[in-house]
Design a binder for these strands. Structure first.
Length: 462
RNA sequence: UCCCCUGUAGCUCAGCUGGCAGAGCGUCUGGCUGUUAACCAGAAUGUCCCUGGUUCGAACCCGGGCGGGGGAGCCA
């Protein structure tokens, strides 16, 4: 198989004959030499193919067709580069254009394009430096997630994407049906879900957590990593309708263990990005978010801060004049509060714990104060909450009470309650939005730019 | 869902009080002894988002629609 540009850069520049295939990023021509920069996606950097006067003469018609975006094959010899900017280059002897990209119609030219414009050409944007780098980092992070858990004896569990229960009683869900909606609408009949595919209403999952807890209570250390769906009408730079989520769940872990796991997990991912995606991160640091690498390095250097919700509210109340919405105990913290706490007070990642039970999910373990639950959110500078988790309520009676208090249907949770009826254990877990991790690691500003084909309200193109 | 901003050349934008449509980048042509966000010179390029209205006259003002962006809420 042919070598990638990444592999070529690991070879000695000893004049060996070499062939490269990829897409033209830019071409510079003078009378005496032409420079064709080719990229094949294997790394950030291009390989420079140099045509001397003889080569220009030999390749003239092809050189003219090799415009930005064209796919090409270049043959030549691998030599040290006399100019700075690259350690080696290809002294080209032959060029063939495989597929033209006419400059009058090819949307990507050798200039900076806005993220908004690139979103409109999602099928071509991976050919840009930025989106190529995002794709490589995304790939490396996905793999690192599995590495981290597998090294620690976690089992990867595949939870269902289609569910007949509204798992957390939270979040609008996408309905899945094979009923003929047009026909039903025209007939005016009531919908009979007994006739639907599953014999009852079914939805796309908003979380694999409740399902993965069942395997946690059997295998001990488990995690999910898969797509998740939210039909919320959210139009922000931090939300997607379809996103990927990582949800570890560990039997016998308390909230402290849970935070330790989350901290070492996040640090490991950041470390891997710094070490294995150095070229891509350098690009993000230079072009997307100044100081990115230094701030990521800072994350590795010290322990994350901790604060209870009650302590946090006290701090916020002292600074109440800085906020649009005045903080008080019981308030679900706003973005402005979360950013203030981790940016101004903690100066880095911050765990907030022990939230009022009213603003958290029913399954979280209740504290003895009767007011708070063993919840934790990890807040990070730049966008606030990146991880949400908790110790789960393992006491059957307390969990049933909570379900009734919230007016949820106990029958719907019978299998979940069985986990507390039979061999219950303390256990804890959390959820990390994969795309939010990528925002954090790449410095990209909009979550729609860290997933290949974003899904959001009124957005399902490509 | 709410609030704000925005739609003009391929892209990013300027366009004053309503009076002949502009710049930078890209593209093209020419020049240049190795360039690398190349450089120098020249050229081409418009449904001013759509629709209705006001006006002698609308890119500009008003109504409606559609698209894009940011913030908030919901959360991961």
């Amino acid at each position: 198989m042919r070598l990638t540009i990444k592999e070529i850069f690991e070879l000695p520049a000893d004049g060996r004959s070499i062939a490269v295939k990829g897409w033209v990023r830019t071409k510079r021509e003078t009378k005496a030499a032409a420079f064709l920069e080719v990229n094949d996606g294997s790394r950030m950097g291009n390989i420079q193919c140099v045509f001397d006067e003889a080569a220009i003469a030999a390749c003239l018609p092809e050189l003219a067709r090799a415009s930005t975006g064209a796919s090409v094959s270049v043959e030549g010899s691998l030599v040290p580069s006399p100019a700075s900017g690259q350690k080696l280059e290809i002294k080209a002897t032959a060029l063939s254009v495989i597929g033209e990209a006419p400059s009058e119609s090819y949307p990507l030219q050798k200039k900076a394009h806005s993220m908004e414009f690139l979103r409109e050409i999602a099928h071509l944007r991976p050919r840009t430096n930025t989106f190529g780098a995002v794709a490589r980092v995304r790939n490396r992070m996905a793999f690192a997630i599995h590495e981290f858990f597998q090294e620690r004896g976690f089992q990867y569990v595949h939870t269902p994407l289609i569910t007949a229960s509204d798992c957390e009683g939270a979040g609008a869900m996408f309905q899945v049906t094979t009923l003929d909606l047009d026909r039903i609408a025209k007939s005016g009949e009531a919908v009979d879900y007994a006739k639907d595919f599953f014999g009852k209403p079914a939805y796309l999952t908003v979380s694999g957590q409740l399902n993965v807890e069942t395997y946690c209570e059997a295998l001990g250390r488990v995690y999910t990593f898969g797509p998740t769906f939210r039909a919320e009408n959210s139009n922000t730079t931090r939300h997607l309708s379809e996103f990927w989520m990582i949800e570890p769940e560990v039997a016998f872990n308390d909230l402290g263990d849970n935070m330790e796991l989350a901290e070492s997990f996040l640090k490991r991912l950041v470390k891997t990005a710094i070490e294995d995606c150095a070229e891509d991160l350098a690009f993000f640091d230079q072009r997307i978010e100044k100081g990115l690498v230094a701030s990521l390095q800072g994350v590795l250097e010290r322990p994350f801060s901790h604060m209870t919700y009650t302590e946090a509210v006290a701090v916020l109340e002292k600074n109440a004049d800085q906020f649009e919405l005045k903080p008080y105990w019981g308030l679900d913290l706003q973005s402005e509060h979360e950013k203030f706490l981790c940016e101004k007070i903690a100066g880095g990642p911050l765990f907030l714990t022990d939230y009022p039970k009213e603003i958290k999910s029913f399954y979280m373990k209740q504290n003895s104060d009767g007011k708070t639950v063993r919840a934790m959110d990890l807040l990070v500078p730049r966008f606030g909450e990146i991880i949400g988790g908790s110790e789960r309520e393992e006491n059957l009676g307390l969990l049933q009470d909570r379900i009734r208090e919230l007016g949820l249907k106990e029958e719907a949770y019978s299998w979940y309650l069985d986990l507390r009826r039979f061999g219950t254990t303390p256990h804890s877990g959390f959820g990390l939005g994969f795309e939010r991790l990528l925002l954090y690691v790449t410095g990209m500003a909009n979550i729609r730019d860290v997933i290949p084909f974003p899904r959001a309200p009124k957005l399902a193109d490509f």
